[in-house]
Design a protein around this nucleic acid. Structure first.
Lengths: 197, 197
DNA sequence: AGCGTAATAGCCAAGTTTGACTACAGTGCC
DNA sequence: GGCACTGTAGTCAAACTTGGCTATTACGCT
């Protein structure tokens, strides 16, 4: 519920403003917020007493727009929430890791190729991020900590790139996927190598 | 829907088996699967014709257990899905990044301390991972690619640790959060530094 | 002036996820 | 033997998320 934070930083706002701001941060990527969720969240937060509606204006025959503001309670709650996220390491689900755990279901060549491809995509991302870090837009229009976030992505992406390449080599080298202890053990039939197809 | 993959690799299974397996992978962490979701997913996949129920046994007066199996269609679908995840870089939401974007709402000292703390937690994680990488249990009982996944986490965590420390220093150094171009510009009042409290 | 497109606001029904709950069978301990 | 506890198997209602839909105004183009 970091919508609360956004409202706090923008008070007073109406739903559409929040939506646009989130969009401009491409927040659907690293937060988990699609446009539809916003109004629901706003209403819920109001019900919980964390937000207060300031006014309801109507321009022409368009939908009425409601303006919100944070209450004192909402302020407290936000700080608690924020603090929790800052002090806690909590890794989020990663679809690639999930897919990687099915490695034995992929033909070796394809797996290696996919990893190489991933490394390239990551490198491309790193490039474009570096570019925007140097661009005037970010340097002059955005708070510096936005740049710092970019650096984090960069660091992660670089680490992952190296990993992809290392693993691709191992896969190509043809090492067995089976546990070191039990070369021909039970339970892995049909998954020992490559696709079952 | 990587449940499908699991069923494929275990056929034939009933819901509880899947649940246990996922638990043992602590899949609630890196996938997004709580016990409650499993049965729903199984039913949905059956409706879509990707799974087929094999039998419904009843032991005593316990809930009947339904056993599932993958259909040919399910097999195809799984490969498509798997491939998509392998070839696509798609970063998932990260609550910490979201929280970090509110940096200006945290007192500088606390922000720096939290980052240092995060670095330590990450280091601890790295340690314990290294330990299990060396342990017999992983070396001899688990396929080697499980170890490779650990290496990925390790690489990411190390990159992030370094970042945390770098940023903590910058925050402590007292640099302004404002964009370089506009030291006293409009719109950032109340957020220039530290908490508004 | 007329027309198509984009932006403005927000609602809502349908789909998903979740955590809590049920209910019984073994198992170990006193 | 009786009791508490753990493991087995799954259901369910409530909460949450989503993407598509409506309806109007503004704007650019010919």
């Amino acid at each position: 519920m970091m919508i609360l934070g956004l409202v706090r930083w923008m008070q007073p706002v109406h739903g559409y403003d929040v939506r646009r701001e989130l969009l401009s941060w491409s927040a659907d990527k690293w937060a988990n917020i699609q446009p539809g969720s916003i109004y629901h969240a706003l209403r819920k937060l109001t019900d919980e007493g964390l937000l207060r509606t300031v006014s309801v204006e109507q321009v022409g025959a368009r939908p009425a727009r409601t303006t919100y503001e944070v209450t004192a309670k909402g302020d407290d709650e936000f700080e608690t929430l924020l603090r929790a996220q800052w002090w806690q390491v909590q890794e989020s689900p990663d679809p690639f890791v999930a897919a990687f755990s099915f490695l034995p279901a992929m033909p070796r060549e394809e797996a290696a190729a996919a990893l190489r491809n991933r490394a390239n995509l990551l490198r491309a991302g790193v490039e474009s991020m570096r570019a925007s870090l140097d661009s005037d837009w970010v340097r002059n229009r955005k708070p510096v900590h936005v740049g710092w976030m970019f650096e984090l992505w960069l660091a992660r992406a670089e680490a992952e790139t190296a990993w992809c390449e290392r693993i691709a080599e191992r896969i190509e080298s043809g090492v067995s996927y089976l546990p070191a202890g039990m070369e021909q053990a039970e339970g892995w039939s049909g998954w020992s190598d490559g696709d079952t197809k």
